[in-house]
Design a protein around this nucleic acid. Structure first.
Lengths: 252, 252
DNA sequence: ACCTTTATGTTGGAAGTGCAATAAATCTGT
DNA sequence: ACAGATTTATTGCACTTCCAACATAAAGGT
């Protein structure tokens, strides 16, 4: 087994579980622990995993390699944002949730709060997180699998969503500016629009770092938004646009 | 600082980063490493984190305790079996793969071998594993999410599968006896049958520990099986039944 | 107050892990 | 085929972590 193969295997294992041990992989690959250690060293230098005593852990999905302190603060803000969004969901609601790191935190809080919901999503991770809660019913949409985002997209996804009608959709986004809500990942915008069409209320979860950014795909104009949930109030110019279009804004 | 408080802090830390160390938390909390160790033991028993040498990791969103445990059993046999099955797939093939621990190993080997395939599956984990391979195209079926198996089932799943026609399906099973192939998980049998209907060839991956077992749902009679892949040849009686129905058997 | 239960600290030995240096094996290009 | 480079195995040693047993301290109930 070549070095390259081992590296891929290690990363693959880390996709499946959060932590692997040196000794474990050594026997699995039939090599010395030292070799595995060296492999991990290489991968760590590439930022693909994090070493720990006796093994390695997966890097957090979508983690920026900033300072730890900054990362922590971002997480805190995101938790607040997601908490606000979760408080908008009531027992018995049906919702659609799209793929994204912010919506993932939202889903975790929803599961933790044991809100009784029926959720339709195109994100595998969100499905898994929310599915662990006994009080949630999860329906997964079909489609072409996008490994970078662990989500499905495409015509099938959008068609399938059209079969449901829900109380609200909770969508993330990569940008919010005068151009409206925009997204960068190919295929996501179409899914978001499909979700919006089937929802009585449309809630966008966008943290303040996305304010002022414009990405390639336009997801929605201000008029189409019902609610914006964020961790900080937008600047006056943006706030004016939002208010003019009747967008309710939630921010701590 | 009370025990409860520490527990919450530990879980909070694990939300921020994937791995924490015992010593680190001990100094942070101002307690002994033994205390932290005990805390982690408690939380591990509740399934809220995973211990590792020197620390603990967050439970992966898609990690399932029982699924992981099952994966640990009969590793060697299962790898051999899955390897045999993987050798039946050729570049350019289209396949359907159903949820199960054996088919998961099969999917991993398929990804590892970089076989150029288009795969349709109802298992989220298999989708994730195979989706990592650049040479595989993965299509996920919709349906109701089943947390224990990390898979979707139901009418939607079966309906969706009916839209495709593939070269072969690779199915696991919980039992193989005179009654035929049987399955225990509710909803799985219907999905397996739906996959069989859309496949030119039908390959069952069943390890020897399932021989002689009969579960509630009958998936297929011998006549409907094309291929049986296992880690050991079945006993004479079963082998005779299989041969009579023209089932090709692969075993090391 | 007393006793019981629970939680925490301390200790010593066993086991696991990391590191560095060296030797062996494998790969690579000419 | 050969020499040099890369990769892996081996070894010894220092260090960290684990575990279990015991001692101590705090909390809770009668």
């Amino acid at each position: 087994m070549k070095k390259r193969e081992r590296h891929e295997q290690i990363l693959l294992q880390l996709k499946l579980r959060p932590h692997v041990r040196v000794a474990e992989l050594a026997t699995l690959f039939g090599v010395t622990t030292e070799t595995v250690r060296r492999d991990m060293g290489d991968l760590e230098r590439q930022g693909l995993l994090e070493r720990a005593h006796g093994g390695a852990s997966a890097t957090h999905p979508g983690a920026h390699r900033d300072l730890d302190e900054r990362r922590q603060e971002r997480v805190v803000e995101r938790e607040r944002l997601a908490g606000l969004a979760a408080s908008l969901v009531r027992d018995g609601d049906t919702v659609m949730i799209d793929a994204g790191s912010t919506t993932m935190v939202f889903a975790r809080l929803l599961a933790f709060a044991e809100t009784r919901v029926t959720a339709i999503t195109n994100s595998l991770q969100i499905g898994m997180i929310l599915g662990q809660s006994a009080s949630a019913r999860v329906i997964l949409a079909p489609g072409n699998y996008l490994p970078q985002e662990a989500a499905v997209v495409g015509i099938d996804t959008c068609d399938y969503l059209a079969r449901y009608q829900v109380d609200a959709c909770f969508l993330g986004a990569a940008g919010l500016s005068e151009a409206g809500v925009t997204e960068a990942v190919e295929g996501f915008a179409a899914v978001k629009r499909a979700m919006m069409r089937q929802s009585a209320a449309c809630r966008f979860l966008i943290d303040a770092s996305k304010f002022g950014l414009t990405q390639l795909d336009v997801v929605a104009q201000f008029e189409e938004m019902d609610t914006l949930v964020s961790d900080r109030a937008p600047d006056p110019a943006l706030a004016a646009c939002l208010a003019e279009s009747g967008v309710r804004t939630f921010a701590p």
